[in-house]
Design a protein around this nucleic acid. Structure first.
Lengths: 139, 139
DNA sequence: GCTTGACCTTCCAATCATGGGAAGCCCTAT
DNA sequence: ATAGGGCTTCCCATGATTGGAAGGTCAAGC
């Protein structure tokens, strides 16, 4: 199985397979006489594992850790769970940050008439104008 | 006002101020006889505008657009609102993606005993095991 | 046999926004 | 005079991925 077939079977691009090998996430693939990388079903399984982990937002570092645990029969589920819980916490932090942004922007947008006039509470906020300054804009 | 003072006054690092200038977000700063960049209160105001926009998650490209609108008296609030609404949509998409990841992981983690044994539903999911395969693991 | 095209190989560069650091100039205080 | 701090430019690194160039290899069709 060439890299292209492995890519098609796993959903990971050939480029990324080579990259994963280069950073040591995957062991060096065997080579055919033509110097082509050769893969088997087990490699494809590993690639899908990586793809699934990445799609759940795990970093390459976390994915490496998970892959090692997967391949280690002496692992404990506690170790795996710890990685997952840490990642959940990271996701929740990021979600909260994004939601705070979205909430602020929704509020500002709802205050913006969105018409042909130039005055805009969104820009006023970005410009650091206080409510007080806003109210006394005729000074 | 030197770049260090402008940085302290705006909360934008000197490094980033130079970067913003290099990509054209900021015009080239005037120079003192020593070739030091010179800033005034207006520049600091602009830097804070940028910082606030970035903190609301706007990309550099969107920030550039907002800055142009801010500095353009002929703008309409509709233009500003459009940028904001597009960004809100982007944020919401990202939030949904992260939440889907978090939900999946929370479910998997809740199914994981997190003990000393190696069997782990989190790894099973990453490995692509179906529920059916899980139930018949004694085969 | 020779060309074409689809693979594969390695290596280098770009992305986005930011941080780190080197080498060297300028100014002030001791 | 020397030490220090700030300024200058330039290059490099991040994380994960994509793009591309230059060249080797293989199969099919002429």
């Amino acid at each position: 199985m060439n890299i292209g077939e492995a890519a098609a079977a796993s959903g990971v691009t050939a480029k990324m397979i080579r990259y994963y090998e280069s950073i040591g996430l995957l062991p060096e693939a065997k080579r055919s006489e033509n110097n082509y990388r050769v893969y088997d079903a087990r490699d494809v399984h590993t690639l899908r594992f990586i793809k699934r982990a990445r799609s759940l937002g795990f970093s390459m570092e976390e994915t490496t850790k998970l892959l090692q645990l997967w391949q280690n029969r002496a692992r404990t589920s506690a170790e795996v769970k710890q990685v997952a819980l840490a990642h959940i916490e990271d996701l929740e932090t990021r979600i909260e940050n994004l939601q705070a942004m979205a909430n602020t922007l929704r509020h500002l947008a709802s205050c913006c008439s969105g018409n042909e006039r130039p005055d805009c509470p969104i820009l006023d906020d970005l410009a650091g104008k206080t409510r007080k300054e806003m109210e006394s804009q005729n000074e």
